[in-house]
Nucleic acid binder design. Structure first.
Lengths: 179, 179
DNA sequence: AGGCTCATGTAAACGGTTACATGATTAC
DNA sequence: GTAATCATGTAACCGTTTACATGAGCCT
């Protein structure tokens, strides 16, 4: 149970259709929780069966009908219960570090190229996050409660990207020096 | 295909039994790739069917027999092919950030407590990583190729923990101030 | 007597990814 | 004409987690 919670959290803002949720997961929430549209539609059916959300079909001419989901009282309770249970530290899956673990036995030049790509990726991410930061969260003293939480997501993103950039720079130097 | 690669990488060092691999995944490799013993045993059977590894039963008196796995030529080829294919950036699953995303609608005090626990967790981790660093990687100029890769894993660990500590400190301040 | 370490496994359930499927409208 | 956007779904597969299972030896 995890994607369901992220969906419920998004529905706390306002009712949304599966499609809108998908869009949402491509931005904002998607930076710390990935989900594909197939996954979202399947989850919505399950959650509807469990009574956590309720879908209403909105007839549309010239477009496919939309099914807009509302969070129910039962869904609201699930959120509260979930928030009250301790969060596990994020489980790490760093494939690149597994490759580096084998550095003594594999081709170094390939890994240097990978590390350079990683460096560029994190630099792009940092620029993106900083742009969002200065557009929406320039003045920290006027944030609503809701904005405060989202600011913290962004803030961790920025700190993490900075750390990754430092690391990738060092790694390129170190691994590249012996190629 | 992912855990199988981590297992192969560990077998490059030397042959190991499922049990030994499990121990291994609790430390070193496990910092960037988690695996339970059930998962490892199942993977080993599959990999054995595919011919990537070969198990040999070692009879033991007064202890259960061990099945020690060697990497085969085919397994070695799988590693090389895997190293040559680009690595996806790690997929993020940060449950705590999803909770913070709902900060406008849920109990703040609970989240402050969570954040404090997080801070402590990352501080402990940092101490642990720094201890390993000064024990095994004190002098960077004398590292073997193999050690270099493992040093980089540790280095990213340290930088990440430092970033998380800064973040968690700020988060406790910010969220705690309005409770 | 109770719990830990060594050592291996099966089975069920759950979660996530990939492929396939449809069909209209709008923008270049 | 081609691609993107809007809008929803099914099916198969793979990977992961949780629960259950066994059994000897060692330490307190």
């Amino acid at each position: 149970m995890a994607l369901s919670h992220a969906i419920l959290v998004s529905l706390l803002d306002r009712p949304r259709s599966g499609y809108e949720l998908g869009k949402r997961f491509e931005k904002t929430l998607g930076f710390f929780w990935k989900a594909s549209h197939q996954q979202i539609y399947q989850q919505l059916h399950k959650m509807s069966d469990s009574g956590w959300v309720k879908g209403e079909t909105v007839e549309q001419s010239e477009r496919p009908n939309r099914i807009v989901y509302n969070i129910t009282k039962a869904g609201r309770d699930v959120v509260d219960e979930w928030v009250a249970t301790p969060t596990d530290p994020p489980s790490v899956k760093e494939e690149l570090l597994v490759k580096l673990y084998a550095l003594g036995d594999v081709d170094r030049a390939t890994l240097v190229a990978e590390l350079r790509r990683r460096l560029a990726f994190h630099q792009d991410r940092l620029v993106l996050y900083q742009a969002i930061m200065s557009e929406y969260y320039a003045d920290l003293s006027v944030l609503t409660d809701q904005q405060q939480g989202r600011y913290l997501g962004l803030r961790l993103g920025i700190l993490s990207e900075q750390a990754s950039i430092v690391w990738a720079g060092e790694a390129v130097e170190l691994v590249g020096a012996r190629v």
